[in-house]
Structures are given as C-alpha cells and as structure tokens.
Write a protein that binds this DNA or RNA. Structure first.
Length: 433
RNA sequence: GGUGAGGUUCCCGAGUGGCCAAAGGGAUCAGACUGUAAAUCUGACGCGCGAGCUUCGGUGGUUCGAAUCCACCCCUCACCA
C-alpha cells in the first residue's frame, strides 16, 4: 500500500461516508502522525460484526503511522445513545456496564497494537474522566457551551423529539454532550484531532468538534464510515441465530467462517475491501479473475479466510476450515476418532444423546431441541424430503419414532459419534452418552 | 380534554357469526437447479410423529357456534383544544 495516501485508499475501499473539510483532513494526515479515536459503547458482553469495520479502521490508521485511541464507553454506555433509535432504551446497571466494558477491552486489544512505543495505541475508558464530574461543574463548564436549539435540531434525535407517544428522556438527550466532552478531553490530554465512527455518529462527532473548538481553541476533524449494506436489502451481520459476534464463545470460528463463506457474489468484493487488509488492486484483480473463470468464484473463500484469521487467529481459521472440509466434502472417511473429539471443540454444535429417553423421543423433537431446526414441523419437512443424513445414510419420516434404531451402536462411528446433516448446511454432532 | 380511525399468526396486510389455524405479500426453512452464491420453480410455514391442542390487544358477556356481535378496560395513530 504504497503510493496512495490513507484517505485515497479509504475512498477506494468505499469506507468513507462523510468527512469534515476533506482537503484539510488529507493534508493533516499526511504531514504528521495524528492521534484519532473511535468509541465503542458496551451494549453487550462482546463486539459484533457492526463494530468490526471501525475497529479495523483504527488499525488502518495505525498502519499508516497514526496513533489510535480505542475508547470504551463505560460512561456513555450507562446513558444510552439515542442516535436514530426509535425508542428509549432501558438502562443497564453499573455492574453490568463495567463488566461489559472489560469484555470489550479484551477484544479490542487483539486487533490493535497497544505497545508502549510512540506509535502504540491507547485504550481508554470514558468512565475514568466522566464519573467524577459533579453536576454543577458539568452544567457550568460543559453544558454552557451547548445550545438546546442545536441539540434538538440534530437529525439523529429529531424523530424521537417529534414523535408523539414516544419522546426522549433528558438522560438520553444528554448523551451528545458526554460524547462531545470525550472528544474535548482526548484532544486536551492526548492531542487527539480526529474522531471516526459509524455514519449514525455524525451528529455526535460534530458536537465534539464544536466543543473542542470552544473549550480548547483547537481545530479538529471528523470522519464517518458508511453503514454496511447487503445487495438484497436485508440487514448485514445477522444469521438465524442473531448477531454474528466476535467472541468465539458466542459465535464459534466455524460459524463465523461459514457466515463469510455464504456471502452473495454481489457483495463479496465490496466486503473484501471493508473487512480485509488486502490492497484494492489485489481485490480488483481477484474480481477480474473470478469473472473470467467458469464456476465457483474464489472471492468468498478468500474473504472467509482473511476475516476469520483476523478475528480468530490462524488457529481459529484452520479449525474452521478443517470442519468445513470434513462436513461439506461429504467424505467422512478421512476423519479419525480424535477428529470427532476435536470437531465439537472447534465449534461444531454438538450434544449428548440421552440413552434413557431415546426410545420415546421422536427425531422431530430430538433435532428441534438440538437446534437443528426451529420446530419439529421443519424437521418433519426435512425428513419427508430425505434431507436428513446421519453418518452418510439417509433417513425419512418412517424413522421418526425409531430414534433408538437410528442411533444404534452399529451405526455409530468409533462407537459413539453420529454426524447429523439436515438440509445442505446444518450439521450437528451427537455423541452417545 | 374533544372527535375520528385502528390494534389479526415473525413483519405488512385481508377477513365483519359457522366453509377460519385464518386470503395475499414479505421474511424464514426444506427440495430441484447450481457453486454452501444469485435468479427461478416446488413444498412447508401456531404447536404436536399423531389423536389433538392453543391463537386474532385485555377481561367478561350474548350465541349451539365469535377474529367477527355487546360491555368495560388498555394501547396506538390522526385532527382539534
């Protein structure tokens, strides 16, 4: 990456939604090492795919010699960001927010280099400088710089203000002040001159820029990232199971890898630009190759490999790939006994068969309970279409009440393993108890 | 506070006494075709292997029978004050 400036590279990737005075920002970034920050509010015990783009963005800046500050919103997370939210959110307790903040810290530190060196990133928590401000100081020293007129005209809160029967609490309304204060504080403390965030953060970022100018007389910048969309209009980052998390315990590396592998052709090259550090030129070349090739494109495989390795490390990627190859090649013969043991550790969903109740449990119930389908009805549908394959053997509706026979010792692999496949993509490992 | 409209199965949205587990569309799941893609076609889509069981804002009521009629209550939306 090379002859392009950072901003040029980001633009080529489609990673910039809005910036403040682009030319000035470009110059600012080129003439010196800049300190920038991005906030992550603890709204759960893990980050999810939606956070990945800004997180990688910090890394991109770091690669260009800038110093990122990853800010965990221990304070703002207590309040709740109203930006473009339809409804008031319920508050989490201080304990929960503190605990979640720690989870985020751990995750973030895996992506960015926090060495003590001069380019080393900084991990901060706004709770540290927000919690101790007393009300009067807050109102006099900070609040005085905001006019309510500006605050209520922000697009991000407008619908909440105008909407009848819904409204916005003073608490959430204050959010933008807290976030603005963060920017001002980081500017004063670390010389931070750039804040990045999702496009929904524009209003908050601009608020921070204004406050920094008023309190610190400093000219600082803002940059927002586009909302990641899918070509078919559905929400990005969701699976049947809900959000795709970065925590391996919430979304296994295998499930994560599968998520990316199933990316539609129409999105894959765009996502490569968003979610990997491959150069734009290489991605374009790959797209070109895929277009000329007959049959299966390589884009998804590359994307899945790159992102999985990035989030779960080389080990996580290899484990995910091992499972994928074993399951989707349809050839179980090259799996040894140890491999089955490893499969569930690697993230393949698995459960233990209860020998006592097996006889009276229909397959429909068994598989629905194991999470292979949402209801017994769906299992029934699959059974009727011969879409249930256990250890390579097809089973149908007539086997429904014969779980004991289906999961007999003779059919077990290595005496206790049953690999169940429902439909094309869902796999589950049952282990005899 | 007043007036008008409305709350139906994941979502949108029909249904105004039995033919309603409830039209149609979307989402989702499965099958065919493919490449674990898209598009297309097919099937499923409240729960239950099944007999059957539980739904139409809530609570009561009328009726052989209610999502549909009545009473009260809760909530939403629009306009007015």
């Amino acid at each position: 990456m090379s002859d392009m400036t950072l901003l040029q590279d980001l633009k080529a990737r489609g990673l910039i939604a809005q910036t403040t005075s682009e030319d000035e920002l470009d110059q600012h970034l080129n003439e010196s090492s800049v300190t920038l920050y991005c906030g992550f509010d603890p709204t759960a015990d893990s980050l999810h795919l939606g956070h990945l783009v800004p997180l990688l963005m910090l890394k991109r800046f770091q690669d260009y010699g800038h110093r990122p500050i990853a800010l965990v919103g221990g304070a703002t997370g207590m309040i709740g960001d109203p930006s473009f939210k339809a409804q008031e959110r319920s508050l989490n307790t201080a304990d929960v927010v503190a605990q979640w903040s720690n989870c985020l810290k751990t995750q973030i530190s895996r992506f960015i280099n926090f060495d003590e060196s001069d380019g080393g990133a900084i991990l901060a928590n706004n709770y540290d400088w927000t919690a101790s401000i007393d009300v009067l100081t807050f109102l006099r020293d900070i609040g005085k710089h905001f006019t309510v007129n500006t605050m209520i005209s922000k697009e991000s809160v407008r619908q909440r203000i105008e909407r009848e029967g819904s409204g916005i609490s003073f608490t959430e309304f204050t959010y933008q002040i807290l976030q603005s204060y963060d920017y001002q504080y980081l500017n004063k403390e670390y010389g931070c001159t750039l804040q990045i965030g999702g496009s929904d953060q524009w209003g908050n970022i601009v608020g921070g820029i204004d406050l920094t100018r008023r309190m610190n007389r400093a000219h600082v910048y803002g940059l927002t990232l586009p909302l990641i969309t899918k070509s078919d209009g559905t929400k990005f980052g969701k699976t049947e199971g809900g959000a795709v998390w970065l925590d391996a315990n919430k979304t296994s590396p295998y499930a994560f890898y599968q998520f990316w592998l199933q990316t539609p052709d129409a999105d894959v090259y765009r996502f490569l630009k968003f979610f990997t550090f491959m150069s734009v030129a290489d991605i374009d070349a790959l797209e070109q190759q895929d277009a000329e090739r007959e049959g299966k494109p390589l884009g998804q495989t590359v994307l899945a490999r790159e992102v999985t390795a990035l989030v779960h490390g080389e080990e996580g990627f290899i484990a995910a790939q091992r499972i994928t190859e074993a399951l989707f090649s349809g050839d179980l013969s090259n799996l040894g006994e140890n491999d089955y043991e490893q499969l569930s550790l690697d993230g393949l969903p698995s459960s233990v068969l209860n020998a006592d109740t097996l006889a009276e449990t229909p397959l429909t119930t068994l598989f629905a309970d194991a999470g292979l389908a949402a209801s017994g009805k769906q299992v029934k549908d699959a059974l009727q279409r011969k879409a249930v394959i256990i250890n390579g053997e097809e089973f149908g509706m007539e086997d429904n009440l014969n779980a004991q026979g289906v999961f007999s010792a003779e059919r077990a692999l290595f005496g206790k393993y049953f690999l169940v496949k429902l439909g094309k993509k869902k796999h589950h490992l049952f282990v005899a108890g």
